[in-house]
Design a protein around this nucleic acid. Structure first.
Lengths: 172, 172
DNA sequence: CCGTTATAGTTACATATGAAACCATTTGCA
DNA sequence: TGCAAATGGTTTCATATGTAACTATAACGG
């Protein structure tokens, strides 16, 4: 199956290579254009955004992303168990366990035991937890707005719709 | 500043809480709906997708995501230096250094020294590297197609456009 | 009832990742 | 020139994260 010839790849620099460029002009190596490869783009955009947001509260409150996520769901659903938190945050139970350890230690979350099932925990934001939450939540929203500001209204609507479709069908 | 009353949050379970739910019905705690929070969605979708793709080649070729990215850019741009690879992959130089260490060790990338600047390296995929590349690239594309298959044509077009806009303005 | 199996959560280990310190070389410029 | 500052890369260390093993409790089947 004779291969279709590729246009010569751009050579990065006009510099004589010391070592052989292996199969430089060889056929069929249709290379990925990373910067237009969807999973790559998603990863970049996601990391950039998350990083930007996290930087805000990370240092200021000594609060990790995972911890923040846990707090966010406890703000909406009081009294969840660790497992339920895991479901709602798309984190695995180990991550949740660790986040909770820190949060409880810091007095931001209170942990009780489920009546009638001593395995389960019953989790709530404490006063201190709420105080943090009420500062971080607006910051997060603000960052989201800044991100969306790069798009016009139509694009924003589509993005919302598209992400909803791409989200794995988990959280109830 | 007297607060606007929130509708009572749904209580997670119909179970008596042992410990006080702190400020259960307290006002003003407008909680984030994580599952509609853009950065969160991006993170989930991105991780899900990357994971799915990586699983394919990770085990089969003992090839990490970072290594694959390096290979992908070397497939397009032969003879790059490590720093240039870093730029093109949005990875930091440490990550690139490590990825290269493994790739060179595995004989998938050959590393020379730049004539006239002994600090710089000159990188190329080796034969073995190309062999891997030519197997992985189609797999990656296939996964991308599967992801896009969840969207109709119009949505696909918008997504592409939107991601291009959201991508940080780096790679030349 | 009692033993098996499942579930909630934690711990331990191994690997990944990021920041900063660290060489070597090159560049800029007094 | 020659020396301070910058650049390319690697190493080190501290932290994060994932997998598997483990503990405790609960549910199930005979």
């Amino acid at each position: 199956m004779p291969a279709k010839r590729q246009p010569a790849r751009p050579s990065a620099e006009h510099v004589p290579l010391k070592h052989a460029p292996s199969k430089q002009a060889s056929p069929e190596h249709a290379p990925l254009e990373l910067e237009h490869f969807l999973p790559y783009q998603l990863s970049i955009v996601s990391n950039t955004v998350s990083q930007a947001i996290a930087d805000d509260y990370q240092r200021r409150f000594d609060l990790g992303v995972t911890e923040w996520r846990v707090m966010a769901v406890l703000a909406r659903f009081d009294g969840l168990s660790a497992r339920q938190v895991a479901e709602r945050t798309a984190m695995d139970k180990v991550a949740v366990s660790r986040a909770l350890a820190r949060l409880v230690e810091a007095g931001r979350v209170s942990r009780g035991t489920h009546d009638g099932d001593k395995r389960r925990s019953v989790l709530s934001l404490s006063e201190a937890g709420w105080a943090i939450h009420d500062q971080v939540a607006p910051m997060a929203r603000q960052r989201e707005r800044e991100l969306l500001a790069k798009l016009d209204g139509e694009e924003q609507a589509w993005l919302e719709r598209i992400l909803d479709k791409l989200m794995p069908p988990d959280s109830p």
